[in-house]
């Protein structure tokens, strides 16, 4: 499978710049509310979502900016939304964790989105459409009962639902070891759902893997559970980080962006980064200046 590294890098660096800029804006007092950045996990979103068609559905959670940018590639509507502007993806009503555009949806309630994604997958199958639904959840969300009700039904109904579990090792401040008994993968297996586990941030591994999974799902229309063990480099939201510095440094060496150096020249990387940064700056300026209108 040919891997479009340039395209993937463009998306990855967009997510990275976008998220880090958000944190700066918060500290400058220009943003309100909360945000959960995707820094460190970019490889999962871009490797999976890049295989989807426009008609396929992505259902995401509180940490949704990466998924949104990967699917819609529209930082302007996202920034405006987070800044509370009318031109935001949801007119400022949703904010950071409640975004929708076309076939992308996100909601900030842990576990609640799984049944919704399940129902959407059911609808696709009911209408004999070739589309699939991808739902992203974190390791902490495995504590919610709705996860298991939904996995059971997905398996019984045999619907095209891809559950991507991003195990970033923490749920807010609680380590996965303190939250989860047994093996994560066994949970999907016990419902008879086809499943797979990887531990990598390398797009050259993740991109072909998701390509195969999604291709198969379009053939058999059945659910799939993919566990990706990764790491969130930034804090859970803003400044609420109590993790061991050494652990974070260890994972920084496995930053998904680093792997691109094996496939793109430094020149190329710098050029793409510069273009993306420039574009983001323009968007920020434009968005800041728009006036709020009340309906």
């Amino acid at each position: 499978m040919e891997i479009p590294y340039r395209e993937l890098y463009k998306k990855a660096i967009l997510i990275r710049f976008f998220e880090n800029r958000l944190l700066e804006l918060f500290s400058e007092g220009k943003l309100f509310g909360t945000t959960h950045t995707y820094v460190g996990q970019e490889a999962v979103a871009i490797s999976s979502i890049s295989h989807l068609k426009k008609e396929d559905v992505v259902f995401s959670n509180h940490r949704c900016h990466g998924h949104y940018l990967a699917k819609e590639n529209d930082p302007k509507s996202l920034l405006a939304e987070i800044m509370g502007k009318n031109s935001g993806a949801c007119g400022g009503r949703g904010g950071s964790q409640h975004i929708s555009r076309n076939n992308f949806f996100s909601n900030g309630i842990q576990g609640g989105i799984l049944p919704n994604a399940l129902g959407m997958a059911f609808a696709e199958k009911f209408r004999r459409s070739p589309n699939i639904v991808v739902v992203f959840i974190g390791d902490g969300t495995l504590g919610e009962g709705s996860t298991y009700e939904s996995m059971n039904l997905a398996s019984l109904w045999k619907v095209p639902l891809l559950i991507v579990l991003e195990n970033n090792q923490y749920a807010q401040t609680t380590s996965v070891n303190d939250n989860l008994a047994g093996e994560i993968i066994d949970r999907a297996k016990s419902f008879g759902i086809k499943s797979n586990e990887v531990k990598t941030n390398d797009v050259s591994e993740l991109y072909p893997l998701f390509g195969r999974i999604i291709n198969n799902m379009r053939q058999d229309g059945e659910p799939f559970f993919q566990l990706v063990n990764t790491y969130r480099i930034n804090a859970h939201s803003k400044g609420d980080d109590f993790r061991d510095k050494k652990e974070i440094d260890f994972w920084k060496k496995k930053d998904p962006l680093i792997y691109f150096k094996n496939f793109l020249s430094e020149q190329e990387i710098n050029k793409i980064s510069k273009d993306v940064m420039k574009n983001l700056k323009e968007i920020e300026k434009e968005t800041k200046d728009t006036q709020i209108k009340f309906k």
């Binding site: 559905v57 949806f105 609640g112 799984l114 049944p115 919704n116 994604a117 399940l118 129902g119 959407m120 997958a121 059911f122 609808a123 696709e124 009911f126 009962g145 709705s146 009700e149 939904s150 059971n152 039904l153 019984l156």
Partner: peptide, 23 residues
């Protein structure tokens, strides 16, 4: 007919409704 999973049933029907079905 579904298993005894009220939350998932309602949640799945939300998803169906969002895709244009009439659950």
């Amino acid at each position: 007919s579904t298993p005894i999973s009220e939350q998932a049933i309602v949640g799945a029907c939300v998803g169906m409704a969002m895709r244009g079905m009439k659950p």
